[in-house]
Design a binder for these strands. Structure first.
Lengths: 219, 219
DNA sequence: AATAAAATTTAGACAAATCTAAAAATTATT
DNA sequence: AATAATTTTTAGATTTGTCTAAATTTTATT
């Protein structure tokens, strides 16, 4: 079975929405895809006919297990290409998304498996999201907000909540980035700021706002 | 201006046909694209409206200079991706074409220029065809049939006339391939076979049929 | 429980790219 | 030069994905 770019985009969007929500609604999906509810209904009928989605009129929907497989395949491609763009072509990790949106629809399985090998089977993309392997399995992300990391527990920064240049500027200044190992040394209740420590550096203070923008994976 | 995948495929096909023929006809193009003459006519009206093609009803057509620019951009992408697939991902040069047919439609200019840099600005693709630079300029191919190479003049093998496994088998056995430097030492009029020499090896004989399948660029 | 509001679906239309069958133009043949 | 054969174009239909506007269903509110 081969699917159109449009179908793949619908499937991927449903996957992301149902991760958060469980059941997905027509309006939600229309908003996600910048399209109209009527178009979503039309496409859902098609996807249902292809057994990629469990859908009953007016009842919302979710991916079938076959649909989930397709979604993971597209996500695998997206994230591997992002990794390639950043690690090999020197793109900034804030400018790869759009290009990967195109590359993720290249259909050759052989291509993506060879790319995976060339990149040495990376487990996380440049935004810290896990990359599914060729069977669709991926590391449990278990990524938590830095705010929620227990005291004195080392964790790796795996993603950031926004791509704004302001945030990137601040991260650069503090030498924080994807892959940095970080630990919380003390919390200050007054303003929810916290003292943190990066491996091999002396401790410093970060604000609540910044901590909320950082997602980490406990080591 | 951005063009659809279909439009790009038409433009590329017209480019290749007019290299050989000068003026291109509707039926020719329909055959090249495995489509029907009526579809070609429809698309030509569109391409004419976009000033990519000089076309008058029943008179045949060719690309405008704007059209040629688009064609060279697509060809640049196609050949750079082929080079990437062979050199970095270890594809065989006989299995990259289809994948490159998809990759050539990825639109990011930044991507292709960074890929070019990553590959160290290759001048020829794995089939020996020249790769246009980011301004659309490419090396004059000046590729000639090995049959026509003057005696004792070194040349580099740049492409092969067919992709058959039989030919590949023979080339492998004789240690011949894209990039090999070769020289003709003697010709035998009886069967048009020739004695050739590869750098650092002793001379051997190849048949007329094999020589005709090899294209070289004099050094 | 009745009605209002919101969400969803249907009906019908449109643009892109394609096709078949018929018409028109060109080219070849007698 | 007239007719036949070929090529090309037009006309009208089809498919995919989209839209607007109207109809239907569900959910919320009184």
């Amino acid at each position: 079975m081969n699917f159109s770019i449009t179908e793949e985009n619908y499937i991927k969007a449903i996957y992301h929405l149902q991760q958060a929500d469980g059941n997905v609604t027509t309006n939600e999906l229309a908003a996600e895809l910048n399209t109209k509810a009527a178009s979503v209904t039309d496409m859902l009928k098609k996807l249902k006919a292809k057994k990629l989605v469990n859908y009953e009129k007016y009842q919302g929907f979710r991916l079938s297990s076959e649909g989930k497989k397709i979604a993971l395949g597209v996500i695998r491609k997206h994230r591997l290409w992002e990794y390639f763009l950043v690690e090999k072509l020197q793109f900034g990790w804030d400018e790869v998304h759009e290009v990967a949106e195109e590359l993720e629809h290249i259909s050759s399985k052989k291509l993506i498996d060879k790319l995976d090998a060339f990149l040495d089977y990376p487990k996380f993309d440049p935004h810290g999201d896990p990359i599914p392997d060729s069977n669709g399995k991926m590391a449990a992300q278990k990524q938590i907000n830095l705010i929620d990391l227990p005291l004195n527990e080392a964790a790796e920064i795996v993603s950031v909540g926004s791509q704004s240049t302001e945030l990137l500027e601040l991260l650069k200044h503090k030498h924080l980035g994807i892959g940095t190992t970080i630990e919380i040394k003390k919390r200050f209740a007054f303003d929810h700021s916290m003292e943190v420590k990066i491996k091999g550096q002396s401790a410093f203070i970060i604000s609540q706002q910044l901590a909320q923008a950082l997602f980490v994976r406990p080591l």
